[in-house]
Design a protein around this nucleic acid. Structure first.
Lengths: 199, 199
DNA sequence: CGCCCTGTCTACCATTTGGTAGGGAATGGA
DNA sequence: TCCATTCCCTACCAAATGGTAGACAGGGCG
């Protein structure tokens, strides 16, 4: 079994994800990134001509990873509430495996255009599909009627918040551990369940 | 009636709120702030010895404004669900009047310590009170049982998200207008209602 | 060997950043 | 009138930032 070392390009993306997903984009310089990696800044600029290019590439890779996880969950067995639960669970699983990824989503949405536009653009099909699904469930009378878009925004906000709002969590006396993440997931699911399901 | 011009110090705080609440803290330099105000950067540094000092002062002022609005709502008439609704409405009212204020809250919580600690610290009593209230409602059987802290985090995330997630909103085909804000408020309330209330 | 291509580095650079030093106009009180 | 205080300014500065230019090492290949 060959000892495979992650190639430089991937390592740079990993470091950028870790740094930007937590400290933030503007707050982390290319020099700092290079320092983390133990390479020269120029090596970063060799693979990615500019900081923004690196961000673009990172968004592309991360979005794909996120989309794939949700897609798999959406495709999988189950319908109605089971499907919602599967998707939420897949996001939390991703958050457990790669905590910075959801942080990056939050960060990019904050950065605004053009970065945010790129991200939302790539997730558009998925969003569309989710909205259609919710609407059909409402039509079938399985879920309470809501504006599908606003409902999606609410779900998105809650899930992202429960995962990434570290400081607020701390202010509430809850340490953001792996164990706590599981509790938060359970709580989100319970909340969504009572909010969405009829009867 | 005397023509009262806002004193420089307040104008600086206003400009900082507008800029940092939307573009972000690191993304907005003191020079940019001074440019917006049509004054020299040194005038800013005269009133606030450093950028961080300005942030502190802004957090103090904004937190107070937010706390006061919520406090009034909490003190006001009503109990049970009416109280929750009153608080949420007060936050949305604030968001309508000063859109950047909630943006700043989001931004500060992202910045992490020490700024975030300062903000959460000042809101601590309010949070405590809200948690106690929720718990007593649960004890009385008026609301579904949840971990009060996690429930608060969920409510916080949803409300902040519905107000400040401009880019996600756009991705969902919803333009962030005043009219839309009212719809979002109605939706949040409806969601919370079905999520929280028993029976 | 000699050549080229890939990948990393050192050496710079222009601009921007937060911040210092200090000048000068206005005001008001002695 | 003189002085002190308040407030805003121009003139700088050291450090950090994103980015350019180009040298150099190594390997594959004719």
């Amino acid at each position: 079994m060959p000892e495979v070392v992650a190639p430089t390009r991937e390592r740079i993306l990993d470091a950028a994800l870790a740094a930007w997903g937590t400290r933030g984009y503007e707050a982390t310089s290319l020099d700092a990134l290079a320092g983390d990696l133990g390479i020269a800044k120029q090596s970063i600029l060799y693979w990615f001509p500019s900081k923004e290019t690196l961000l673009d590439a990172l968004i592309a890779r991360s979005t794909q990873e996120l989309a794939q996880a949700m897609q798999t969950a959406l495709d999988g067995a189950g319908d109605g509430w089971a499907k919602v639960e599967a998707v939420v669970r897949s996001v939390f699983r991703l958050a457990a495996r790669r905590p910075e990824l959801l942080g990056l989503v939050r960060e990019v949405s904050r950065l605004g255009p053009p970065a945010a536009t790129r991200m939302t653009g790539e997730l558009q099909p998925l969003v569309r599909r989710a909205a259609d699904f919710l609407e059909s469930e409402m039509d079938a009378g399985h879920m309470r009627r809501h504006d599908p878009s606003l409902l999606l925004l609410a779900i998105y906000s809650t899930v992202i918040g429960m995962i990434t709002e570290v400081e607020v969590l701390r202010a509430l006396g809850e340490e953001p551990t792996a164990r706590s993440l599981a509790r938060r997931r359970a709580d989100v699911l319970e909340l969504l369940r009572s909010a969405l399901l009829t009867g």
